[in-house]
C-alpha cells in the first residue's frame, strides 16, 4: 500500500492522468481521478463508463490516460474490468504475464448514472463474483454528460432537466438512493465515501490507497460537484464539496468487511443544510416560501442519517 504522507510528498507523484482533457473548467471528476490514480505505485488498468469523464478524456486522437484504459459502454464498466482482471489471473496462472515484475491493479470509474442506475447490475455482479478491483463512482447526482437529467442519486428537491422545478413542482421527488450502504451489503471488504479538494485530499487518497491494496472488490463513492449542472461558479467546486461534508449532506466514512463503520471526518459543528443548498442554482427554488418545507425535510433526513451513522459506528456491529 502506498503510504500517503503529507501533501508535499504526495505532490511529487508524477501525474498519470493528463490535462488537455475536455472536462468543464473546475470539474471535480478530474480532481478525483487524479487523486485515485496517484494513490498507488502499482500499474493500472482502468475501465470507464460512458459519461462526462469518458467523453472528455478519450476524444480521438487524444487520450488523457497514461495508464491502460478501456471504455465499452454506459452500463458495463464493472463487467469490462472484471474481464480484464480475469485475463490477468489466467495469464499469471499460465506463466504468460506481460510484465512479471509489476503488480497490476484494476479500477473502474463510473458516473452516478453508470453506477446507481444503468450499470448497477454489472457492478453488483462483478462485486458478488469477488473480482479484485476498485470501483469509483463519480457522483454528481445526475446524468450530466447528456445535459443534467435526474438519476437515482439526485437528491430530493434538486432541479434537473427531467425533474424540473415548475409552477407545481419543487424538483426531484425521490430521495437519493443509498448506494454506499448497498455496496457494503454486498459484503465488500472495503467501501467508503469521499470528496475532492484540498481539505479532504488525504481522506480520499488514503481511502483509495487502502481500497487498491485490499484484495477483492472495493468501492468508493466520491461526491463530484458539477459546476455546470449544479449551477455554481467553477472556482467554488472545492468549497461546495467541503460544505457537503460540513452540513453532513455527504458524510465521510468507510465500512470494512461489510459492517465495521468508521466516520472518517466529523464536522466540529454541523452546519445547517441551507449553507450547502443556497450555494447551488439547482436548489434555488427551495428558498421560495412555498418550498421551505422541502428544506426542512432535507434537514430532518440529514439529521436522522447522521445520527444513524454515529450509532452504527458506536455499535461497531
Amino acid at each position: 500500500m502506498k503510504n500517503i504522507g503529507n501533501l508535499k510528498e504526495f505532490a511529487c507523484t508524477p501525474d498519470r492522468f493528463q490535462g488537455g482533457h475536455r472536462l468543464c473548467p473546475g470539474c471535480a471528476h478530474g480532481m478525483i481521478v487524479r487523486e485515485v490514480v496517484n494513490a498507488t505505485e502499482d500499474d493500472l488498468v482502468i475501465s470507464t463508463a460512458t459519461g462526462c469523464l469518458e467523453v472528455c478524456t478519450a476524444i480521438y486522437p487524444y487520450t488523457s490516460w497514461d495508464v491502460s484504459w478501456l471504455h465499452i459502454g454506459f452500463e458495463n464498466a464493472a463487467a469490462g474490468i472484471s474481464g480484464a482482471e480475469a485475463m490477468y489471473k489466467a495469464l499469471s496462472r499460465k506463466n504468460r504475464s506481460y510484465n512479471e515484475d509489476k503488480k497490476v491493479k484494476f479500477v473502474a470509474f463510473g458516473g452516478d448514472g453508470g453506477t446507481y442506475d444503468i450499470g448497477f447490475q454489472s457492478l453488483s455482479g462483478a462485486t458478488e463474483r469477488g473480482h479484485d478491483f476498485l470501483y469509483v463512482c463519480l457522483d454528481n447526482e445526475g446524468y450530466m454528460n447528456t445535459g443534467g437529467q435526474r438519476s437515482s442519486s439526485t437528491p430530493i428537491g434538486a432541479h434537473t432537466t427531467t425533474s424540473p422545478r415548475g409552477r407545481v413542482s419543487y424538483g426531484e421527488k425521490n430521495r437519493k438512493k443509498d448506494l454506499t450502504m448497498i455496496m457494503a451489503a454486498h459484503g465488500c471488504p472495503y467501501v467508503a465515501t469521499a470528496v475532492p479538494g484540498s481539505k479532504h485530499w488525504k481522506d480520499l487518497a488514503q481511502k483509495a490507497a487502502k481500497a487498491l491494496s485490499t484484495v477483492g472488490p472495493t468501492f468508493i463513492n466520491a461526491l463530484s460537484p458539477c459546476t455546470t449542472e449544479w449551477k455554481f461558479k467553477p472556482q467554488d467546486t472545492v468549497e461546495i464539496a467541503d460544505l457537503a461534508v460540513e452540513t453532513c449532506m455527504f458524510p465521510l466514512y468507510e465500512i470494512e468487511d461489510g459492517h465495521k463503520l468508521t466516520i472518517t471526518y466529523k464536522p466540529k459543528q454541523k452546519l445547517p443544510v441551507e449553507e450547502y443548498l443556497s450555494r447551488q442554482g439547482r436548489f434555488s427554488h427551495l428558498f421560495k416560501p412555498e418550498n421551505s418545507w422541502v428544506i426542512e425535510e432535507i434537514q430532518k433526513e440529514v439529521d436522522r442519517y447522521w445520527e444513524y451513522l454515529q450509532r452504527k459506528e458506536e455499535a461497531g456491529v
Partner: peptide, 24 residues
Amino acid sequence: CWVSCPDSCFLVEEVENKRGKKQA
C-alpha cells in the same frame, strides 16, 4: 493548488526539505 487542479496544470520540482525528505 496541485491537488485541487482538475487539469494537472501545476509544474512541480522535487526538492529535499531540511530533514532530507522529498517534497514538491
